[in-house]
Design a binder for these strands. Structure first.
Lengths: 207, 207, 207, 207
DNA sequence: CATGAATGAGCATTCATTCAT
DNA sequence: TATGAATGAATGCTCATTCAT
C-alpha cells in the first residue's frame, strides 16, 4: 500500500487495483467478474488484461506482497541472543509489541488480508509458500523467544508450540472481536486484559 | 447427517447432496458449477433443480440445519440455576464438556462447517440469523454460566464477554490446530493443557 | 453425408453441422465465429458447445469421417492378384473407375473436402493420420497395381511413384478444372481425353 | 525480395514484414494476431499500423507484388511470332525453360506463395485480378505457344486449353511432390521424366 | 421422479486499431 | 518514426436454469 511499486503505476492501473481489492473483499474472488472490476475502475475490460495476463494473476499481485509483509517484520531477522535481550525485557513486553504492531497492520490492510483468508483454502499457490514461511521462519524464531523466557523462568515448561498456540489464539481472538463485533470498545484496554490473562495462564508461579 | 429428513430422500437426492457438500467444501460455492455436482452425483443436471429451485437454495439446505445443530444443543435450553448446578460442578468441567462435545461434532460435520465458514461472509442470509442466534441465545446463556461461576469465586471479575472470548479463542485454537496442523497429536492431552491454561488465566486466586 | 450417425441427430444438431460446413467452407475455420454458426443454424450459441466441447472438435467431427471415406474405398482392401485380375482388365480401365468414382464423391462432398484442403496445413491432427494412411495404405496398394500392369507390359518401366504422380496430377487437374473453371464442359469427354493422354504418356510402345 | 521497395525500408519495417510472412505462412492469416507479429518483429504493436492501415493491407502488401512477379515474366510480353521462333525451338524446350524458371522462383518465394494459395479462396481482392490476369494474359499467350507448335506438327490437335491443363498439372505435380514429399530426390531427373512423359502424351505421332 | 437438449446471459480473454507522447 | 497504454467489440466457452418428454 502506497509503496514503491505503486508509485510507477498509471492512474488507470491504480484504479484497477483498488477496484479489484474492494470487490474481491466484498464478494469473493470467484464471484467477482472482470467486467465488474473494469466498471468500478472506470476502464475498459481489456485494460485489465494489459496489466495482468489473467484474473488469477491480478489476485496474486494483490495478495502476495501484502501477506508477505504481514508475516515478515518481526520474524525474518534471525533472533540472535542480542536481539532477544536487547529488544524484549519480558514475554509480556514482547506480546505487547507484537500485538500492537500486528493490529496496526491489519487495520491498514484489512481488505487484502480478508481476501487472503477467504481464498487461501482454494488456491494452492497460496498454501505452500505461506505454510513453509510459517513452519521454517516464524515458528522457529517464535520458539526461540519462548524458550528464552522459559529459561528465565517466566513461562511454564509446556511445549513451546503449545505456548505459541495460546498466545496467537488469544491475540487473534482479541483483534478479531475488535474488528467484527464491538468496534466501539477501547482496543488498548482489551489488549491489556488479554495480556494479563495470557501471563496468568502461562506463568509457572501458581502451579 | 443421517437424520430424519435424509431418511425420506431418494438415492439420487442423497447423491446430489453428497456431491454438493464435497465440491462446495473443496472449491468454494461460487467456483462450483451445477454441472460438476450433477456429474459427481451421477444424475442429470436438471434433476438438481427438481429438488432445489436454485443453486443457492441447495447451499442453504446443506448449511442451515447443520449449523443450527452445531450451535444449539448446549445453549438453547434456558440456563436456569437448576440446570447449572445440576450439570456442571465447576467451570472447568463445563469447559471440558463443551470442548469434547464440539470437537466430536466438528469432526463429523467438517465439510459442511467449512462451507459455512467460507461462505458466511458473502451471504446475508447466513449473517443475520446466526448473528442473532449468537447474540440473543448463546451469549446470554453463556453469560449466565460465567456469572454463576464468578459468583462462586471460581473466575476473575472480568466482563463476562471477555472471559467468553478467551474461552472460545483458546478452545477454537486448540481444535483448529488439531484439525489443520498436527493431526497426529493426542487431542485429549492438548485439550487438558488448554483447559488448565484457561483455568490458570481466568482464576482470581493468583492476583 | 446422410449416413448412419446423422440419423440419430436432433434437428438442431444437424442444423449446426450444416451451418458449420457452409461457413467453414466459405470463410475458413479461423475466420468463422461460433456466434455466426449459431445464428445461421438458428440455435443458441451455447447449444453448439453441448454437442462439441470446442470449436476444433466441431471441425474434426466434420472433416474426419468424410476424408476417411474419400481415401478409403479403393485402397483399403489389400490388392491381391485375384482382386487385380478380377477387377481391372487394364490400367486404362482402372483409371476410368478411379476417376469417375472420386469425381462423384468430390461432387457430393465438395464443401467438406474444401475445408480439409484449406485446413490440413494448419492442424497437426490432420497431417499425421492422413499422411500415414497415404504412405502405408494407399501408396503400397497403388504401387501393386502399377507394378502389375508394368509386368504385363502396359506401362513404362519408370519408378512406380513417378507413374502414380503423373496419374494423380492429371486426374486431379482434370477434376479441379472442371470444378473451378469451366463447369459447363462435359466431364466425360474431358476425362476420356485425360485418360488417353495418360495412356499415351505412360505406354512403353512409342519409345 | 531484396528489391527496390525493400531498400527504402527501415530496419523495423523490414522486421515486421519478415515476421508477418513467417507467421501468416505458418498459421494462416486469420489465425495470426498483430500482437504476435509485433512480438516476433521486436516492435510495438502500434508500429505495424504506422506502416499499414490495417492487417489486411499488410497481407496484400506481402502477397501482391510477389504473385505478380510469379505470373508475369514469361507471359506479359506479347508473344509475337518472332518471340516464339526466336526463343523456343520446340515445345519441349519451352517446357524445360518454363519449369526450371518457375521452380527457382517457388523455391525462393515459397512462404509468400503458400500464403497466397491459402488465402486466395477467402479474399475477393485476390481472386478477380489474378483470375483476370490468367484469363486475359497468360492463357492467350500460352495458347499462342501451343497453337504454334500444333501448327508445326509437334502437338496433338486437342483443344489448346486441354494441352495447357495437362502441361500445368504435370509440372505443378512434379514441383509439389519435390517440395512436400521427397525433397531429397534429384529434381532435374524428375523434371526430365515429366517432360518426356508430357511429350509422349502430347505428341501426335503414335496415334 | 428423472432426463437431457436447449437456452441466453454472462464469463475471462483476445482482437485490431487508435492516439497522446 | 516509434511507442505502448488504452479501447470496446468480438471471441470461444460456461453458467444456472427451463421444459418437453
Amino acid at each position: 500500500m502506497g509503496n514503491q511499486e505503486e508509485k510507477k503505476m498509471s492512474e488507470k492501473h491504480r484504479k484497477i487495483l483498488e477496484a479489484a481489492i474492494d470487490t474481491f473483499a466484498e464478494k469473493g474472488y470467484a464471484a467477482t467478474s472482470t467486467n465488474e472490476i473494469a466498471k468500478k475502475a472506470g476502464v475498459a475490460e481489456g485494460t485489465i488484461f494489459r496489466h495482468y495476463k489473467t484474473k488469477k494473476e491480478l489476485l496474486l499481485s494483490i495478495v502476495s506482497p501484502t501477506v508477505a509483509k504481514f508475516v515478515a517484520p518481526h520474524f525474518v531477522k534471525s533472533f540472535s541472543k542480542e536481539v532477544l535481550e536487547g529488544e524484549y525485557d519480558s514475554y509480556e513486553e514482547f506480546l505487547r509489541k507484537l500485538a500492537y504492531n500486528r493490529y496496526e497492520f491489519i487495520k491498514q490492510n484489512f481488505p487484502i488480508l480478508k481476501i487472503f483468508i477467504q481464498e487461501v483454502a482454494f488456491h494452492e499457490e497460496f498454501q505452500k509458500p505461506y505454510f513453509n514461511l510459517f513452519k521454517d521462519v516464524i515458528l522457529p524464531n517464535f520458539t526461540k523467544v519462548v524458550v528464552h523466557f522459559q529459561d528465565k523462568g517466566e513461562l511454564k515448561k509446556l511445549p513451546p508450540e503449545t505456548i505459541i498456540r495460546f498466545t496467537i489464539s488469544t491475540i487473534a481472538g482479541t483483534i478479531f472481536t475488535q474488528r467484527f463485533l464491538d468496534q466501539k470498545q477501547d482496543f488498548n484496554q482489551e489488549l491489556e486484559e488479554a495480556i494479563s490473562f495470557l501471563m496468568d495462564g502461562l506463568s509457572p508461579g501458581q502451579k
